[in-house]
Amino acid sequence: MDIREIDLTINQERLIEMLDAHMASLKEELFPYQKEHFSFASYEGGEYTGGITGEILWNTAHISLLAVDPAKKGRGIGKILLKQAEDYAKQNRCTQIHLETMSYQAPLFYEKKWL
């Protein structure tokens, strides 16, 4: 066996072909491998106050970035942005949302039961 570093785009295309072929052989109804990106922003009085980005792949939404202007924290902006992403995911037949955070990135916000 020979492991090599290759161009990311070429590798992704080949992997997607393999995964799609495997999925086509299954008897279950599965979503095709089509990544869809989403991006929502919050504004107050025309001023950008925060945003959320992510992608949908198969039946899973992945939150990539979420941030709120530090001067605007505590106003529910993050909660509203996450709710918008959740609603968008549901509209696109997602059954799960994946989000990762670090211990220094507002852990109390993520520990709240906001949904």
Results as ranks from 00 to 15, higher is better:
residue 1 M to I: 07
residue 3 I to P: 00
residue 3 I to N: 02
residue 6 I to F: 11
residue 8 L to E: 14
residue 10 I to F: 08
residue 11 N to K: 15
residue 11 N to A: 10
residue 11 N to Y: 11
residue 12 Q to V: 13
residue 13 E to F: 08
residue 13 E to W: 05
residue 15 L to Y: 11
residue 18 M to Q: 10
residue 19 L to E: 13
residue 23 M to H: 13
residue 23 M to P: 10
residue 24 A to S: 13
residue 24 A to Y: 08
residue 26 L to V: 13
residue 29 E to G: 07
residue 31 F to E: 14
residue 33 Y to S: 12
residue 34 Q to Y: 06
residue 38 F to M: 06
residue 39 S to I: 03
residue 39 S to V: 03
residue 41 A to S: 07
residue 41 A to T: 05
residue 45 G to Y: 01
residue 46 G to E: 05
residue 47 E to P: 08
residue 48 Y to S: 04
residue 49 T to Y: 06
residue 49 T to E: 10
residue 51 G to R: 00
residue 53 T to Y: 05
residue 54 G to S: 06
residue 57 L to N: 12
residue 59 N to Y: 12
residue 59 N to P: 11
residue 63 I to D: 09
residue 71 A to T: 01
residue 72 K to T: 03
residue 74 G to L: 04
residue 74 G to A: 02
residue 74 G to W: 01
residue 75 R to N: 05
residue 76 G to S: 02
residue 76 G to N: 00
residue 78 G to P: 06
residue 81 L to R: 06
residue 84 Q to R: 15
residue 88 Y to P: 10
residue 89 A to Y: 04
residue 92 N to M: 13
residue 94 C to E: 08
residue 94 C to G: 04
residue 94 C to R: 04
residue 97 I to D: 13
residue 99 L to V: 15
residue 100 E to S: 13
residue 100 E to C: 12
residue 100 E to N: 14
residue 104 Y to I: 10
residue 105 Q to Y: 01
residue 107 P to R: 08
residue 110 Y to V: 01
residue 110 Y to S: 00
residue 110 Y to N: 01
residue 111 E to P: 02
residue 112 K to H: 03
residue 112 K to D: 04
residue 112 K to C: 02
residue 112 K to G: 02
residue 113 K to P: 02
residue 113 K to Y: 07
residue 114 W to K: 07
residue 115 L to N: 10
